[in-house]
């Protein structure tokens, strides 16, 4: 029962055509671009999409999502290196631990709103950061090194970069589908209602805190999936992934791509990773300044983000 606008009739905006095109692009991409770069893009695209599920669809600004990305990376790394499990189990372990952490963070933070919610998540994430820094097993400042990629299901050797790429791609597609499904589910409908008018949702009998908590846990778990996968790719769980910088960066990715749009955060994640990759060598630490400038431009000039602005343009074109 969705309204069909003129714009959505144009071929590119037809979801089936659009998603099929993107799916094929993802399959052929490693033949023209560096697989390692692409894998990094996919990990951050998934991370930002998971973050957007919380901010864009539940209206909750977490400033502690690095804790889920980073911790899952360490859990996966330790499981792979020291326990010797297969990669899919490593990723699963990271996902489950991040989901449980999300449940815990959420339970503590969800009764607060706005800035207080953000501050509690930040404080909890900082505690995780210091724990990771202090514990011996996590390698302190050096991070967790020498993580083997292992054999997927005990069969496929992931030290082959192409095999690794398609594994990451499959993980991304699955994670993205879970997010897409969550947004377009009965649960997603209630989440949108809460975001639009929380008192009204309460007055209709919904225990809004429970819905927010589930959204938080799903978002944290999938952030963990991204972090665990990233550890496999780089064979390293890095301290910077638990640092609050990372919590800020995912906000930037989401805003840049388009808050509350489905593809936006993935686009934003890809854009930021690309910019960082291109600029890291030529401008060094000025990259931080450039990121700051992008952030300001984003908030002041195009609040809808890349995908949001494109959608608005197409809509306007469609109406004429």
């Amino acid at each position: 029962m969705r309204p069909t606008t003129l714009a959505s009739q144009s071929a590119l905006l037809n979801p089936a055509v659009l998603y099929t095109t993107l799916l094929v692009l993802g399959l052929v991409a490693p033949f023209t671009l560096y697989p390692t770069f692409l894998m990094k893009v996919l990990c951050f695209a998934l991370f930002a999409s998971a973050f957007n599920l919380l901010l864009g669809f539940a209206g909750l600004l977490s400033f502690g999502h690095a804790a889920f990305l980073g911790s899952a990376g360490y859990v996966c790394g330790l499981m792979m290196r020291d326990v010797g499990v297969t990669p899919e189990l490593g990723i699963l372990a990271g996902t489950v631990v991040a989901g449980l952490m999300g449940w815990l963070f959420g339970t503590l933070a969800i009764r607060r709103t706005g800035i207080y919610f953000a501050m509690i998540t930040l404080a909890l994430a900082q505690m995780v950061y210091f724990l990771v820094l202090q514990i011996k097993a996590t390698g302190g400042e050096d991070g967790l090194q020498g993580v083997p990629r292992g054999h997927l299901f005990g069969l496929i050797d992931l030290s082959n970069n192409m095999a690794m790429y398609y594994t990451v791609y499959a993980v991304f597609c699955l994670g993205f589908f879970i997010i897409y499904r969550t947004i377009h589910s009965p649960f997603g409908q209630i989440l949108k209602a809460i975001r639009e008018n929380e008192p009204r949702a309460i007055s209709l009998g919904y225990d809004v805190d429970k819905f927010k908590l589930l959204a938080f846990a799903i978002s944290a778990a999938l952030s963990g999936t991204a972090g665990a996968t990233k550890t496999l790719v780089f064979q390293l769980a890095s301290l910077s992934d638990v640092h609050w910088h990372m919590s800020g960066e995912v906000v930037l990715m989401t805003l840049l791509g388009g808050l509350g749009t489905i593809l936006g955060p993935a686009v934003g994640g890809a854009t930021i990773v690309t910019i960082e990759n291109q600029l890291a060598e030529s401008v060094g630490s000025w990259v931080t300044v450039i990121m700051g400038a992008i952030f300001v431009a984003c908030v002041l000039l195009f609040r809808r983000g890349i995908v949001g602005e494109i959608q608005a343009l197409l809509k306007r074109a469609g109406m004429q």
């Binding site: 499904r181 377009h184 589910s185 649960f187 997603g188 209630i190």
Partner: peptide, 20 residues
Amino acid sequence: IGLQRKLGTAFHFWRSDKSL
């Protein structure tokens, strides 16, 4: 949104919203 709660699927994030 008002009718949905009685279906008992309000937390089902894995189900399509077509079920509504």
